[in-house]
Amino acid sequence: MSDSKNRYFMETEIFSQPNLIDSSINNRISFDNSTLLFPEIENSKLNVLSISRIIFTGMGTSYNAALYGAKVMEEIAKIPSIALNASEISSDNFFSNDEILLVSITQSGESSDTVEMMKKARSNGVLQILVSESNKSKACNISDIYLPINSGIEHSIAATKTFTMSLLLLLQLSIFFAEKKSIFISHYIKEIKKIPLGLADFINDKKVINNIKEISKYISNYNNIFYLGRGKLFPVVLEGSLKLKETSYIHSEGYISEELRHGTFALLDKNIPVIICATDDENYEKNLSMIKDLVSLKSPVIAILNEGEKKLSKMTNKTLFIPKSSNISIPFFSTLVFQLLAYYVSLKLGNNPDLPRNLSKIIKNS
C-alpha cells in the first residue's frame, strides 16, 4: 500500500512523474545557454567524436528503454546504435572495436545478466556508461561513467517511473552527444521543456482518467491482447504490453505494427483486441491501412490518437486522445497512458499491482 491519498505505490509513482521529469530537465539543461549538462561525461576520458557505434543493453523494462535509447541516439546524434538483450551478448566480437561505447541500463545495478555482460565488455577494454538508480552496485563498480536515473526509490515491483526517467535521460544524452557533434539542438531543448507541464495537465484531467478507466474495464474482459507501434513508439508499446502482463496476468504481446501482418493476423478475431499507438503523423497512411485491416478481421481496435484526429477515431471501438505534440514528447504521453491502463485493469481484476505474483525486485538506495 502507498499512502492515504493513493491506494498503491504504483499509482503514486505514476503520478509523480511530471515533477520528476521537471526536476531532471532543470538539472540537465541550461536554458540560458541552450546546452546540456553532463559533468560526469565532461570529466571523463570519453570523446564523443571518436565513437563509431553504441550498444545499448538491459533486461526487461531496461531492455525496452535500451531500444528507445538506440533509436533516439541514431535519430538525434546520428551515431549508429543498436539495442541488445544483455543475456544474448555472448561473443567477444561485439566488443572488438575500440571505438564502441556500451550503455547499460539497470534500475538496481544488480541484474546478473547485465553485470556479466559488462564484465565481458570491460575485459575487452570497452568504455562504459551505466544508467541506474544506484551508485552502490556491482554494475556501478564496473562502469566508467555513472548517470543517475534520479527517479527515487520505486516500491512497486512493476516499474513505471524508473522506465520513464530512463527514457528522459537517454533522450538528454542523445541531445548532448548531438551538441558535441555540432548538430543543431535548440529545437529539441525547446520541445523537451514543454514535457513536464504537458504531462501534468494530461494526467490530472478527470476526463482523461475516466476514459482510461473505461477502456481498462473494456480490456479486462479479454484474455489476449496485442500492442502496436512504430519507431520510437515500439519500445513504448513493448513496455505497455509488459506492464499489462505483470499486473493483470493478461497475455499480451507488443509488435512493430507491420510485423503483425506476418503470421500473427491468423490469430485475430473478435476475441483479441489490438491497441495501436497511431500518434506518429509521418506514418498516418500506414496506421490508417492497419486499422482498416484490423476492423475487417473483426478484431476490436483501441487507438491512441492525437487530439482532434477524427477519421481514425470513427473506425475504432475505443479511442484515447493525447495532446498533439512533438515527436520527442509523444513517447512520454503514450508511456503514461499504458502505465495507467495496466494499473486500472489490475484493480478491475482484483489484483495487487504493487506485488505481481511470481515476481520480485531489488531496491537499492543511491
Rank of each mutant, 00 (worst) to 15 (best):
M1V: 12
K5L: 13
Y8I: 00
E13T: 01
I14A: 07
I14M: 10
L20E: 09
D22L: 04
D22S: 15
S23W: 12
S23N: 15
P39V: 11
L49D: 14
L49E: 13
L49M: 11
S50R: 11
S52A: 08
R53I: 00
F56Q: 00
T57S: 14
G60R: 05
Y63R: 01
A65T: 14
A66V: 03
L67I: 13
G69D: 09
M73N: 15
M73S: 15
E75I: 03
I76M: 11
I76E: 12
A77W: 05
L84T: 02
N85K: 15
E88A: 12
I100F: 10
S104W: 01
T106K: 06
E110G: 02
S111N: 15
T114L: 05
M118P: 11
K120N: 12
R122C: 01
L127S: 09
I129G: 10
S132H: 02
A139T: 04
S143L: 01
D144E: 06
D144V: 02
Y146D: 05
N150C: 10
G152A: 07
H155Y: 14
H155V: 06
A158K: 07
T160P: 00
T160I: 08
F163M: 02
L167E: 08
L168E: 07
L169R: 02
L169K: 09
L170V: 11
L170S: 11
I175M: 06
K180E: 13
F184I: 11
I185E: 09
H187A: 12
Y188N: 06
Y188H: 14
E191G: 02
K193P: 00
F202A: 03
N204R: 10
N204Q: 11
D205L: 02
K207I: 09
K207H: 11
Y222M: 09
N223G: 13
I225Q: 01
F226M: 10
F226W: 02
Y227S: 12
G229H: 00
G229W: 00
G229R: 00
G231C: 04
V236P: 05
L238Y: 01
L238T: 00
E246L: 01
T247L: 04
Y249M: 08
H251W: 13
G254A: 04
G254M: 06
H262A: 07
T264M: 12
L267W: 09
K270V: 06
N271R: 10
I272Q: 00
I272R: 07
I272P: 02
V274D: 00
I276Q: 01
A278E: 03
A278R: 04
E285S: 14
N287T: 01
D293A: 12
L294N: 01
L305Y: 01
E307F: 13
K310V: 11
L312N: 03
L312S: 09
M315V: 07
N317R: 05
P323A: 04
P323Q: 09
K324Y: 07
K324G: 07
N327K: 12
F332K: 02
V337S: 06
A342Y: 15
S346E: 11
L347A: 04
L349W: 05
G350N: 11
N351R: 14
N351W: 07
R357V: 13
S360M: 13
K361C: 02
I363W: 01
S366C: 03
S366M: 10
S366V: 09
